[in-house]
Design a binder for these strands. Sequence first.
DNA 1: CTGAAAGCGCTTACAG
DNA 2: CTGAAAGCGCTTACAG
Lengths: 337, 337
Amino acid sequence: MNYTIIDVAKLSGVSKSTVSRVISNSGYVSPAARDKVLQAIEELQYKPNGVARAMVSRQTQNIGVIIYRQHHPIASHPFYGKILDAILEKASELGYSIFVMTDKDITSKSADFLLEKRVDGLILISKLNDELIQYFKNTGIPFVMVNGTSESSDVIHLVNDDLKGGELAAEHLLSLGATAISVIAGPQEHRSHKLRFEGFRNACLKHGVAIQEQDIFYAESSQFEEGYRGFLTLWERSHSIRTLFSTNDMMALGAVKAIYEAGMLVPGHIAVMGFDDIDYAAMANPSLTTVHSSKTKMGHDAVTILDQAIQGGEKWSNPPQYKPELKIRHSTQITKS
Amino acid sequence: MNYTIIDVAKLSGVSKSTVSRVISNSGYVSPAARDKVLQAIEELQYKPNGVARAMVSRQTQNIGVIIYRQHHPIASHPFYGKILDAILEKASELGYSIFVMTDKDITSKSADFLLEKRVDGLILISKLNDELIQYFKNTGIPFVMVNGTSESSDVIHLVNDDLKGGELAAEHLLSLGATAISVIAGPQEHRSHKLRFEGFRNACLKHGVAIQEQDIFYAESSQFEEGYRGFLTLWERSHSIRTLFSTNDMMALGAVKAIYEAGMLVPGHIAVMGFDDIDYAAMANPSLTTVHSSKTKMGHDAVTILDQAIQGGEKWSNPPQYKPELKIRHSTQITKS
DNA sequence: CTGAAAGCGCTTACAG
DNA sequence: CTGAAAGCGCTTACAG
């Protein structure tokens, strides 16, 4: 059923070396020979065996993507999924196939799995501990980290400037005249939640507004349900909430739901702001004011940079952090009710 | 850097045949020999080369997933992404790695790409034309279709019972006392949108309610924006809309947004119902009444069934269609305002 | 410009 | 229970 290079060679009357040259488009081959081979390939519907090819060339043209995440959804996640989409797109452009793997445990197990498949490079999404980073370095395989921390500066990692983003958020809310702001802070062991909150808090302080500890809800996950629970908890502590900032959109949306169910309106009674600019932020009702963080660009760059590293290119330097961008929508339009 | 089976053989003082036997866990090998080999593997941190393995065993332990879709997002899509998540989960459970590929064009090109990588099987998500199905059959590779049509009954395809789902939707809306219903109908060339609408329409008719042509908006895509535009178009035609059904949640959410922007309330002025039960249906404000369609189960089954087909198992028969389930939420609670 | 030879890292029968 | 041999389908030097 499946023909090999030998079948093509026979049919076209040349050696398999020649066939190899035309399919890999390398080395010299006379136009006449090339034509005959091409014709035979067409006739036989021959497709080169990528596995055999990878074996000898030591290049699989495969990239492994590992998304570490505790909770579902993963691939369909509005933030990580978006990055994945961009990776998929750019990879196909550059001729790579993508192995996707999701894992709840941040261990080397899932990575080993892909390593046995001999991927040419790895894209690691989410936070990793240093031990694991060391492990990857030892394997010698090129890899880039996306949206994760890293103490080791010699690891390529793509991140958003979340500190700056937090500042932008604070400035917007402050410009509305807020003098007290409640915050739903995502897991502080995550780089992005930590920096967003830090930037936010500092900017507030700089403008003379100190966030009170009792007005902060430290979320255990960064999910919708936690945002919902977060608002309820804050509301129980104090009924004077007028302005709420959440370190991501999902939780902000959860809070909005809780606010409505409590019989209040957004932004009428409480102005709410999120972070990420997931697709649903714009679709939500009311549409959610947020800070746009790069997802598509990150995914594209991850593949491009990894490709360079694979090609054994020059010493790449860490790209600059992506600039956040304020997206003002209805959830904070307090003047227009 | 990377050790081979020969290095392990040398270190443990046995032949590579024996090493092969212990790593592939087949054939006899004495406990003593096994121990020595295992120890050498540990010491060398040896990892079998999956490519070489795949080459001779003719099994890659890879499954290719191709999602054909015109518009972004694809991986992060609330419906298809969810299926992908389930596929990923089950695949890792069964020891498969997943190649993911998204393509806007429904051609054999992207499939060829994966075929060259020699996947053991293929999962095709979305509608395909018969020509392409024929193409896949010719390759002889096992494949299953998810959420797509197929005239050829000998192709495994997993689908929801969308006809029944449409009926459930109609019955719910009718039970609310609706005597006229407007509909946003997704692309009718898609099996699911077509059947959902068909089931809905027929059930209405059976209860004496005929859907008027002017109350139907035929959407060009199934996206949020089309739902938004859909409501506006319908509203322009008639201001007496009280009940709206959309053949998917995304468009329903778009319609809800348009309704609010027009200064009306859901369900106060207009009751809205969607279809799919994507995560956001429950999170939306107001939460969206919808019909739950299987996504996770579909993804799991796709891998399980494909695995059986790969194992050369017995003649699988097409599994029954997944039963839809009504999810009543706030967007149609017209009695409670 | 082209062909013969060696080899990539494994597994699979086949002797022993 | 174990080892030697052949071979999977390609590519890569090396002669010619």
